[in-house]
């Protein structure tokens, strides 16, 4: 049985079962894979495509002819073209729009999404390192990083479980802990509730040690 995160003289400590650490580490790896696939999709390696690129504009004009040409001219006048949000629900939740207006969001995404992806991948990798050891021990600097990784796992699981409002979240919490999980969904629900509990204990401990207000 796992023991919650608690503050120590040198950071935070939680005792987790070997299978719990392994599962969390695997979930981190899964989210890393999702983010890397997105990176490959939107920033493909330009290797071997250089000769084609010289004619990209020409081909775009040929293909576009009427309406396409007008659009191209609009782009030339204004800002760079934007980047569309990921189609996958979980990825879209991990990499949300930064503006309500679609065009503004796409332009912002072109500028910032790569940095968000890189931060998340680095966080999840660091969390995997921390999960190699029992007890899981985090310094004051590692704690927020581990906490962000737990949050990304929870966002991903929540999206797969279809948690869209408070009632959905309640339902998942009620359904978990009823005994052995028989289906993938029940297993994911167990993982969601476990990760939620672990993150809650970590941030409660972190809030307790934040210096009081001046």
């Amino acid at each position: 049985m796992a023991r919650a995160f608690r503050p120590t003289t040198r950071g935070y400590k939680a005792e987790l079962e070997t299978h719990e650490r392994r599962l969390l580490s695997q979930l981190c790896a899964d989210v890393i894979t999702m983010l890397q696939q997105r990176s490959q999709q939107v920033d493909p390696e330009p290797a071997g495509e250089a000769p084609d690129d010289e004619f990209a504009h020409f081909r775009a004009e040929l293909a576009g002819l009427g309406a396409g040409l007008d659009e191209q001219q609009e782009h030339d006048d204004g800002a760079e073209p934007g980047l569309d949000p990921p189609e996958d629900q979980a990825l879209a939740r991990l990499l949300p729009d930064g503006a309500a207006d679609q065009q503004q969001a796409a332009q912002l995404r072109r500028l910032t999404e790569a940095s968000v992806r890189e931060t998340k991948i680095a966080d999840l990798r660091a969390a995997r390192m921390a999960l190699e050891h029992d007890p899981v021990t985090l310094t004051d600097e590692q704690a927020p990083v581990f906490g962000r990784a737990l949050n990304d796992i929870r966002l991903t699981l929540a999206s797969r479980l279809g948690i869209e409002d408070q009632d959905d979240a309640e339902r998942i919490h009620q359904s978990a802990g009823q005994g052995a999980a028989a289906t993938t969904e029940e297993f994911m629900a167990e993982l969601y509730v476990f990760t939620t509990w672990l993150q809650e204990t970590l941030f409660s401990a972190m809030l307790d040690v934040l210096p009081e207000d001046e």
């Binding site: 991990l94 990499l95 949300p96 729009d97 930064g98 503006a99 309500a100 503004q104 969001a105 912002l108 910032t112 940095s115 968000v116 931060t119 998340k120 966080d123 962000r148 949050n151 990304d152 966002l155």
Partner: peptide, 15 residues
């Protein structure tokens, strides 16, 4: 700030 909030997993927008 919006980018940082996204790194923390919060839904944030610029307005």
């Amino acid at each position: 700030d919006v980018t940082a909030m996204h790194s923390y997993g919060l839904q944030a927008t610029l307005e």
